[in-house]
Design a protein around this nucleic acid. Sequence first.
DNA 1: CGCGCCATTGACAGGTGTCAAGAAACGTGG
DNA 2: CCACGTTTCTTGACACCTGTCAATGGCGCG
Lengths: 248, 248
Amino acid sequence: MDTTPSAQVRKFAARLTSQPLSAMESLAIATRYENGEAVYRCNDPVEYWYRIVAGAARTSALTADGSRHIVDFLLPGDLFGFGTRGTRPYCVEAIVPATLIVRYPRRSAEQLADFDPKIARGIREAAFDSIARLQRRMVILARTSALERVSGFLLEMADRSRGAPPHTVFLPMSRYDIADYLGMAVETVSRALTELRTRCAIALRGVRRVQICDRSALEDLADGLAETGALPPRETRWNGAPRARSSI
Amino acid sequence: MDTTPSAQVRKFAARLTSQPLSAMESLAIATRYENGEAVYRCNDPVEYWYRIVAGAARTSALTADGSRHIVDFLLPGDLFGFGTRGTRPYCVEAIVPATLIVRYPRRSAEQLADFDPKIARGIREAAFDSIARLQRRMVILARTSALERVSGFLLEMADRSRGAPPHTVFLPMSRYDIADYLGMAVETVSRALTELRTRCAIALRGVRRVQICDRSALEDLADGLAETGALPPRETRWNGAPRARSSI
DNA sequence: CGCGCCATTGACAGGTGTCAAGAAACGTGG
DNA sequence: CCACGTTTCTTGACACCTGTCAATGGCGCG
């Protein structure tokens, strides 16, 4: 791995196609984080916007009962930490050694955006992309069955893992992280993965390296077309869920 | 209700404090929607950005198995339909009669933002607010128990219902909508509400009008501090969930 | 080598989805 | 205004899923 962060930043920025933020890179401050190290914490002021260059991180919240929720996983290329007023509602921690993150001083970046409409558009599109991704996650999280959620999660990670060998997903997070991300128990995550392996939809090459053997099976599961195999959805589902109606 | 939409728009725009979008109101096109009417549909091109002025709407997606997921409920004041390229991934429908929505032609709005940094900032902050709200929802959706999710939902609706009598929430959506929003069965939603009523945390003044009798009880439930009452969390929970760790 | 954390599997109880039935609310047309 | 059909909401019964608790094995690390 390259030891000069700025070189990595430049290389990465050059890889971006639709993000005309290159002029903002002059503000960039690169930092390297160890495993578990905090990028920012709850209640910190919003001083920077961030982009992750290498490694992985998680956005998490602790609730009153001591349980933890993972709001998002951050992978190379993601912009995060948007906001203008108030303080951070969540904290962000690296989950991979030598995670590389660049940060842009918020006020300077905003002034830059005021001056350069291209920058403003770039930030806007990044925010819109975040919204789109969160909405997709919403659909995954709202699925009722564990298999559906885990399948959707694997597909999401596969789609986000660019540059990786095709049909292979590396999961930088622990099973506990996945469980807190999907809102289920660790054991259920483990069982769901085993079930997917049994069905030959995936294979585990190492604990955190998943090979997708049958993507369409995974997609069917994520879409709720489960049951024993490639059967069409039961007729009763259509009668039992007459929900495409208006209310009031 | 006022029959002249533009008057409502002006009045509403004047109510906004931190949204310097008033200059964008010259682009506004107001439309009135009947119950169940579509504001836009899946695969429509992204031609407009929207703001809901009165009434309510839902953003929803249909999955392959015929089930429906509600990505978001839209209440007066919300901006929605952000995006620049591609087509709409979800559809938006009014769920209240005489819902009033204004739309801004996207290209014109973007040009306006290019020209006026204040407009650009306003749009950016609206997008950031959307992200913050989606992230809060993520935490609610990731809760495992039905009572927790329904309690969180009620609190969310209470926080968003400004202008309503305090401690009273009007739910413009059906139970089916709530179920598809929270990712659970309608019957479970109904049972959770009954349970909350039994515990005297809420009272139902009409089917869709909820009075919050004990907000702290509701908050405790939403935070997972459930069990029989105000008891401290069981010691086993802290041992059983040693998740605040780093991975790898 | 021993220790702690992670991952998996099993047993079991409680929660939730499914199916079914009935009540209540709403819109419609007479 | 009332009767009617439709939709929505609630409640019950039951099976299955998932959370909880427990034990085991693997892996990295000191």
